[in-house]
Nucleic acid binder design. Structure first.
Lengths: 201, 201
DNA sequence: ACCTGAACACCGTTCAAGT
DNA sequence: ACCTGAACACCGTTCAAGT
């Protein structure tokens, strides 16, 4: 009578979705460097090779992880002006990075395959909708995205190591380079970009 | 009589400098992904393990490569105004990235160990020298560096894949996202930052 | 159809042994 | 002092074999 339960494997069946979900959790936990198909297999309760029945390669799997990651980022709807939509997007993108610091670098690497492209389309669509010409929309998108990625990767890569006597100028400004100023500096850079486009486009 | 020449190894002796130099050449050639101690050994004419007599780890070796890479970047001297010094630095940093596209990501990763910190000190020193307060200097440095790193990493990571019908807005602005506009867009972002600090600091 | 075991061609790194 | 050979504990991936 216990045979049916005993016969089937003790774990839920493998699916693309479950594998991607577990991958993201594992990356959040141990980091990209340590993440391997063998450790993923251990986390899933199967052999590493079983994964290749659901994904063509580790690379394809990581694309699926990016999809999971980006799912919740979106561009605010029309109504409050383009500045606040741009700001809203930038902040939610940065919030995602802080929620998944170890997985975020994946996004910077493979930003245009996968669902990330839908997000790009959303942002550009919003800019066009707000009246930007194609040329300005492209410039603003690039400058904004590049600034966000650079700032976020920097914030994630650890705090500035203490300055020594060899670096007197770093020492003088060091207090303002610490994490407690990250929010303020990120917003200031964002404002610079937004204000610059406001007066010139 | 040929014994002295025949006895010593046919290659120049290994030194930290020669290993780092060959590493950079090899990375420029085959990329970071393919770069391994074994392939480096082959390029040097020795076994991979010989490298560990000169560097404690591959990681330490990569730090030395970063030092080699950054050697030629510097901040223009005083005299032409801070805007043009900042611009000059940003352009030479970007030029380095285009000269070593496959090695550049190393810099973004390990920017503050190694000699890269001297460069940071130079920039901040220039800003202080030009009259910025510590707080403004720190903000401007961060915003500038983050923008440069984001923009450069983006430029290096390949062109935007062609838009499909699923991405109508990307399609509309696509022409302006191509590499022939990279220079112009990079400079525009740079100006945004510089002008923003000009009017407010 | 899905999973496993064994194997292949790689890694970075250690260490005893050679010169 | 510097280099090598063999080995260890890992990788991603393939493939024949199992159910």
């Amino acid at each position: 009578m216990a045979s049916a339960a005993a016969t089937r494997p003790r774990r839920e069946p493998l699916t693309q979705d479950r594998i991607a979900k577990t991958s993201l959790e594992l990356i959040d936990d141990i980091g990209l460097e340590e993440f391997s198909t063998r450790r993923l297999g251990a986390a899933l309760g199967c052999e590493a090779m079983a994964i290749y029945n659901h994904f063509a390669s580790k690379d394809a799997l990581l694309d699926a992880v990016v999809d999971k990651l980006i799912k919740d980022v979106s561009v605010p709807p029309m109504g409050e002006g383009w500045q606040s939509r741009v700001r809203g997007f930038a902040r939610s993108y940065r919030a995602l990075a802080h929620a998944h610091p170890k997985a975020f670098p994946l996004l910077a690497t493979r930003r245009f395959r996968t669902r990330a492209r839908n997000l790009v389309d959303q942002i550009i669509s919003a800019l066009l909708e707000e009246g930007f010409e194609a040329r300005s929309a492209a410039s603003l998108f690039r400058i904004l995205a590049n600034y966000c990625n650079g700032a976020i990767l920097d914030e994630l890569s650890g705090t500035f190591p203490g300055a020594t006597e060899d670096h007197p100028s770093i020492k003088r400004v060091q207090a303002f380079l610490s994490p407690e100023h990250y929010d303020e500096i990120f917003d200031r850079g964002l404002s610079l970009i937004i204000d610059g486009f406001e007066s010139k486009s």
